Amino acid sequence: MTGPEPLIELNDVGRTYDDDRAALSGLTLRVARGEALAVLGPSGSGKSTLLNLLAGLDRPTTGEVTVDGLRVDRLNETASATYRRSRIGMVFQFFNLLDDLTVTDNVLLPAQLAGMPRARAAARAAELLERLGVARHARVHPGRLSGGERQRVAVARALMNRPPLLLADEPTGALDTASGADVRDLLRELNAEGQTIVLVTHDLALAEACATRTIELVDGRVARDVVAVSR
């Protein structure tokens, strides 16, 4: 029997920088559609490099990176930008919301960049804000929200264009305990609905709560690969 179709395939991927430091070395990895993969490891282990390769923000020195059937490592800058708009949602530790725009306008940005019709974009934004529990803040600016609320808005923005892959980089790192628990619950719910997630974190509780599978990177290689028995 064959397993679920892979959304992500990395074949013998290496990334070496100008100082001859290998951030990744011979990394081969498959991530199935619908998985929630947590990536753990010490600083300098290659976690951020892996996310940047998946997002098309960096290119491997060697090997192949395929996401949703597309060879990401072969894309030029214009094609990489289109790829990120259409196939990737990104959630960051410090939210990266624009404080001079309302919550709704922040969420609408990816749709505007992708050329989505205005009425459809507005309906999608309203749907996401309602679903994520922040609809009452639609006309508010992000600076007036709590950290947990801002992260929910950031997740709504990331999901705006219905991306096959959601990348989350330390999404609870700037949150208090209660807000972090809210975001953990949110990511778990999204994955239960079928969203594929790759999550980089130092938070073991987040990985245990959200991930269907956990890998640990050490010196740019997979040192441990564990599938969760249950969540």
Rank of each mutant, 00 (worst) to 15 (best):
I215F: 05
A38Q: 13
T104K: 13
D219F: 08
G143C: 00
T49Q: 07
R157Q: 04
I8G: 00
G220C: 11
V65E: 04
R213P: 02
E77Y: 01
E64T: 13
L40K: 01
V200Q: 11
V198P: 03
R59L: 14
G46F: 04
R59S: 14
V72S: 03
A126V: 09
V227R: 14
A192F: 03
F92M: 04
A81R: 11
R139C: 03
A55F: 00
P142N: 04
D105G: 01
L70S: 12
V107Y: 02
A154V: 00
L175N: 02
P117R: 10
V222S: 07
A79G: 04
F95A: 04
T214C: 07
L7W: 10
A205K: 01
V67I: 11
V155D: 03
R231K: 09
G69N: 03
A207F: 07
L166S: 10
T177K: 14
A209W: 01
V39R: 01
A207W: 04
A22L: 13
V13T: 03
E216A: 13
K47N: 13
A207N: 08
D219P: 06
R33C: 04
L190I: 10
T16V: 15
P117E: 12
R139S: 09
C210V: 15
A181R: 15
A81E: 10
G148W: 06
L108M: 12
Q195I: 12
A119V: 14
A174S: 15
R30T: 15
L54A: 05
L70H: 10
T82N: 07
G46W: 02
S43Q: 09
D225W: 07
V153N: 01
E193N: 05
V155L: 13
T66F: 03
L24Y: 08
G115M: 09
R224T: 11
R221D: 11
S146K: 07
R131N: 09
P110G: 12
G56K: 00
E130A: 14
V107I: 10
L70E: 14
D58R: 06
D182K: 08
A181W: 01
R136S: 15
L145D: 04
S146H: 06
L217V: 10
G14A: 14
L101E: 07
V155K: 02
L145Q: 00
T102F: 06
T177D: 11
V153C: 03
Q195L: 13
V134D: 04
R33W: 08
A174F: 02
P142Y: 06
A228V: 04
V222E: 12
L175I: 05
V222C: 10
P164D: 06
V222T: 13
A168M: 08
R136T: 15
